[in-house]
Amino acid sequence: MKDAIKIRILQGDPVIHDVKNASLPKLFRGLPVIEDKPCLTGCTSCAEICPTNAIKLNPVSIDIGLCVFCPLCEEACPEKLIHFTNDYNTASEVREKLIVTNKTKSITPEKASEKIRNYFGRSLKLRQISAGGCNGCELELNALGNVNFDMGRYGIEFVASPRHADGIVITGPITENMSKAVEICFDAVPNPKIIILVGTCAISCGIFKNSTKLQRKFLNENKIDLFIPGCPPHPLTFINGLLDWLDK
């Protein structure tokens, strides 16, 4: 008993109380910003080096649904116009908003419809499906349940059975071998239900774009409610994305 109390005291108060204003290390690569200055004439360095072709030119834009948050474009730009900030708020309810231009200062999802907020605003139970995820996203989603992030305090939790869930969270590029399981699992979730894509692979295949072993039919046939970009997304990206979306 004495030992247990000792351990509990060591534990201290590790909870991040204010998840909206927590700060991350300087080097953390979150939302990229593009300075509103003209590029060198004819320069295509950033678009050329981007490993996932996330960058379009004239004017420069970065699709963070494709971006794997490596610092290659930041390093390649001769004018240092691209810079990754440590802003972890990058979730969006529509795919188009993930395209960062020199006008983008921040990305937050619009409030969900009143119907969704009424249904899920107080309690949201999610079933996670890893469909080719490398275990990076999965570990970050698991971290949401630890004593630091403690997502349960907002009524958002992962559950074991799709029957108990209000929606699914997909990680990974959806492999051929998992495509059927994803469909069966989603079918088992009672209506109304939502779909959240977590991580670059789920949103756009990321580095696995050229793989012939993927089957992403499911994503074309269903409406996606929330996109959480990152490789992998920081737990705070997930929490804040959901809190903003549910207006909590």
């Binding site: 995820g133 990974g172 051929e176």
Partner: peptide, 11 residues
Amino acid sequence: LGYQHRGVEKL
């Protein structure tokens, strides 16, 4: 296993 197969070696 094999559900996670993404064809990494070929890539």
